[in-house]
């Protein structure tokens, strides 16, 4: 049995009278990429926000790296949060800072590095995330969508987190950029030993890099497991999702990619 880094048990999230999650269980194991899929409005982003502690769940137990974020003192919580990296859907780069400053900010704030040292490390993270060096001194507004994602990834990786949360990383990227981003995440996972919690709609991403897939539906995790197991599950939504025209195309592309290797 592999070690779990995230353990969600009996999670309940409600907005007014609308229940988004009811008694939801989910695990993330060390070193794996877990793809979380589900229709619009099934609470994928809410789940992510609950796990990283941005939203207090109505009930339930969430353990991140063996600790409950909510029960920690502010200081311990901050220490724990440094071991998590989050890539938000639209990057959430600070607009008043350059890309380099964005990436160096957590290093300066948390690891006590001086600015030149922090910037040197930040440059490394930017190259790791696949950004050209001349992008470092640009402001987020001057970057293309794909570069914003890469810069945000560099910032999420700044403190060498153990768990990386990605909220629709390939949304809004062109297929070439999306495929490159998938490869990048797979490389980083192998190189840095990351555990990745990946919320996505992108079937190609699922086939390309996910070790396991969890399907959210009916306020619960309907099924979680290897992709072929999940795809074979007898559920109308899952059948539509994985065996609809897009699902078939993505599966075929994945088979071809595997064959050509």
């Amino acid at each position: 049995m592999r070690a779990t880094v995230i353990e969600v048990r009996g999670l309940v999230n409600r907005f007014g009278s609308q229940t988004v999650h009811e008694d939801l269980d989910l695990d993330l194991y060390r070193g794996e990429v877990l793809g979380v899929v589900g229709g619009s409005g099934t609470g994928k982003s809410v789940l992510l926000r609950s796990i990283v502690g941005l939203r207090r769940p109505n009930a339930g137990d969430i353990r991140v790296l063996g600790e409950q974020l909510e029960r920690q003192s502010p200081e311990a919580r901050s220490r724990l949060e440094r071991r998590l990296g989050v890539l938000y859907q639209r990057g959430a780069l600070f607009t008043s800072l350059t890309v380099l400053e964005n990436t160096a900010l957590p290093l300066i704030e948390h690891s006590g590095l001086k600015r030149p040292e922090a910037e040197r490390l930040a440059r490394l993270k930017l190259t790791l995330a696949g950004l050209p060096l001349n992008a470092a001194d640009k402001y987020p507004a001057e970057l293309s969508g794909g570069m914003v994602k890469r810069a945000a990834l560099a910032r999420a990786l700044a403190l060498d987190p153990e768990i990386l949360f990605l909220d629709e990383p390939t949304a809004g990227l062109d297929p070439v950029g999306a495929a490159a981003f998938d490869t990048l995440i797979a490389t980083l996972r192998d190189a840095l030993g990351l555990s990745v919690f990946l919320v996505t709609h992108d079937l190609d991403t699922l086939y390309a890099i996910c070790d396991r897939v969890a399907v959210l539906a009916n306020r619960k995790v309907l099924v979680a497991g290897r992709l072929d197991v999940v795809a074979a599950t007898d559920d109308p939504w899952i059948q539509d999702y994985f065996h609809g025209p897009r699902g078939r195309a993505a599966a075929q592309a994945a088979r071809q990619a595997a064959g050509s290797r």
Binding site: R120, T127, L128, D190, A191, G193
Partner: peptide, 20 residues
């Protein structure tokens, strides 16, 4: 093996890039 992969990734990233 993981550390080798890490070193390789970082070294490759730095190879193309002249130090700031």
């Amino acid at each position: 093996e993981e550390r080798r992969a890490l070193l390789r990734t970082v070294a490759r990233a730095l190879q193309g890039a002249a130090p700031g």
